[in-house]
């Protein structure tokens, strides 16, 4: 190899190290037999045991799961329609509405939804969290579905129409199966985004409901124990699983979003 490419590989490896070392440390210390995240003392499952007996954490996990499932289902439906509309009708208003929530600082969406829900007299809780999550997940699903449609050969639809299929039939039998991997990838992404969201949930959750990220935040702020590392490790495993799945279904989709 030339000198230049050694330099490139060397610096790239350092940056990969920078990306992964912190996460590796979180995982390693989740098995550490010490309250402090400072020094390796010995191996233990203790913190996982603590985690699975932590009522609040389990409740938060349950909430996150419900929110993630409902929000990803609704946003997949709406996001698929939005992606189709963006591709087929090139609606500019819709494009702005779909992309803005992704582009602006998250805190702005969080506080404006807080004002909105309070003005509607809606009690903050699971419902307000789900409504908010759907709003920012739609865009991600729409982008993946749109890019999948853009990669599709339009003459397939024309062929189906020439053979006598109604527009609906052509959509159901030709378009839908072809874009299905994109839709599933979008759904997985929406679920991941919902499960992981902190900022918008922080403003729209109210006082009585908690989710995993909110629970992690309050533990980080008040009393850190390696239980945080344990729940972090499990969450990272889940994300890894979902995102690798999504990237297998729709290569390039994650990059587009």
């Amino acid at each position: 190899m030339k000198r230049g490419s050694w330099l490139l590989w060397g610096s790239a490896l350092l940056v990969y190290g920078f990306l992964y070392l912190p996460l590796a440390i979180v995982v390693v210390y989740s098995f550490n037999d010490s309250r402090l995240n400072a020094e390796w003392v010995g191996f233990t499952w203790h913190w996982y045991d603590v985690l699975f007996h932590d009522e609040q954490m389990l409740e938060a996990a349950g909430n996150s799961l419900i929110i993630g499932l409902v929000a990803s289902a609704v946003s997949t439906l709406l996001g698929t329609a939005a992606g189709y509309a963006l591709y087929r009708f090139k609606s500019r208003v819709l494009a702005i509405l779909v992309l803005s929530p992704i582009a602006i600082p998250e805190i702005l969406m969080g506080v404006s939804l807080l004002i909105f829900f309070v003005m509607l007299n809606l009690t903050l809780g699971l419902v307000s969290i789900i409504l908010s999550h759907v709003a920012f997940c739609i865009g991600f699903v729409a982008i993946v579905v749109r890019s999948r449609l853009a990669g599709m050969d339009d003459s397939l639809i024309e062929a189906a129409r020439d053979l006598g299929a109604t527009p609906w039939k052509a959509f159901r039998l030709v378009t839908l199966p072809l874009i299905m991997p994109g839709i599933i990838a979008g759904a997985l992404m929406a679920f991941t985004l919902s499960i992981d969201d902190f900022v918008i949930t922080f403003f729209t959750a109210g006082v009585d409901s908690t989710t995993l990220p909110l629970q992690i935040y309050s533990m980080i702020k008040i009393a850190v124990t390696p239980e945080v590392n344990a729940i972090s490790t499990l969450l990272m495993l889940l994300t890894l699983f979902l995102i690798v799945g999504a990237s297998k279904l729709a290569p390039g989709a994650l990059r587009a979003a």
Partner: peptide, 29 residues
């Protein structure tokens, strides 16, 4: 290589911040 850049981005935001709390903490290596 692209996937390796994307994966940390999809892990939880708070966990990524928390990791630095450990690394930079007063008792850290």
């Amino acid at each position: 290589l692209v996937l390796l850049v994307i994966l940390p981005f999809w892990s939880n935001f708070l966990i990524r911040v928390y990791a630095w709390m450990i690394i930079l903490g007063p008792e850290s290596v």
